[in-house]
């Protein structure tokens, strides 16, 4: 109410009362701090990040050309099979991508195996699939024996050592439908699928550890929430002081 023009008019950018002005200034300062803390950090994360391949992707890429044109050695095929199995063991995997990699992996295992082992493998995979479809409880003893035998058999073919976590996942990714061929469509898609799951946005903020967390994760999941409570507390304390100074009636 300082000028005729502003009589009984109020806006965030032109507050016309002293409490509104003080409140606006405080709000503006805190909103800027809040915005920088929330969005500024994520922008910084985005600016600093670099697509970083996992070692498995590098191994895959080193053998892929030979696998694709059919000139891969046994060791190269083993590297190929192990790298696809690594992705098959991951926590995020879309069904379509799983099908592509199941094809690649099963084909590779059967390609590496000699005639005798191949026959044994085919039989083991087929009976294991039948058993899997039949049981309702994975503690079924027969199922466990079949799974473990298949794991040892196929694991030795692709060069996995006992104690490798992938050994227990391996039997579930061998499919009879893919034993004899690697479809052109799946072959074309394989490099893109591998890159998709084995490349991650990393930077100093993601690689630094803080209280056990990757730093960026701690900042977003823990710190920001503490910060929000702190900002609210600060606002209340400051507003109480402003209202006291300006004799604003808060009892309504």
């Amino acid at each position: 109410m300082e000028t005729k023009k502003d009589e009984y008019h109020i806006s965030f950018f032109k507050p016309t009362t002293a409490p509104a002005r003080a409140n606006r200034n405080l709000a503006l300062m805190l909103v800027i701090i809040w915005a920088v803390a929330v969005f500024g950090f994520q922008i910084l994360l985005r600016v600093l990040e670099k697509p970083t391949p996992e070692p498995t992707l590098t191994e895959f890429e080193s053998v892929w050309a030979n696998v694709e044109n059919g000139n891969a050695s046994v060791e190269e095929m083993q590297t190929f099979a192990q790298s696809t199995l690594t992705v098959l063991s991951k926590v995020f995997l879309k069904a379509d991508d799983r099908a592509v990699l199941d094809n690649a992996f099963t084909w590779a295992v059967f390609k590496i195996a000699n005639d005798e082992t191949r026959e044994e493998l085919a039989k083991a995979v087929s009976t294991f699939e039948e058993k899997s479809a039949e049981i309702t409880d994975i503690t079924n003893t027969e199922y466990i024996v079949m799974r473990d035998n298949l794991s040892v058999l196929a694991g030795s073919v692709i060069g996995l050592v006992p104690g490798d976590i992938r050994m227990s996942i391996l039997p579930l990714e061998l499919k009879t439908e893919y034993e004899n061929g690697y479809s052109d469509e799946n072959k074309t898609q394989t490099p893109a699928v591998m890159t998709k799951y084995l490349t991650h946005n990393q930077s100093v903020l993601t690689d630094t550890k803080f209280l056990g967390f990757p730093f960026h994760y701690f900042y977003t999941a823990v710190f920001l929430l503490i910060f929000f409570v702190g900002l609210c507390w600060l606002y209340c304390v400051r507003t109480d002081a402003i209202h006291k100074r300006l004799s604003v009636n808060d009892n309504m």
Binding site: R46, E54, K90, V91, F92, L93, I165, H200
Partner: peptide, 16 residues
Amino acid sequence: AIVPSPEYAMPWDIST
């Protein structure tokens, strides 16, 4: 046990 899965914690991972 779990195989290395950076996609769980890395920001805006392509796989998600």
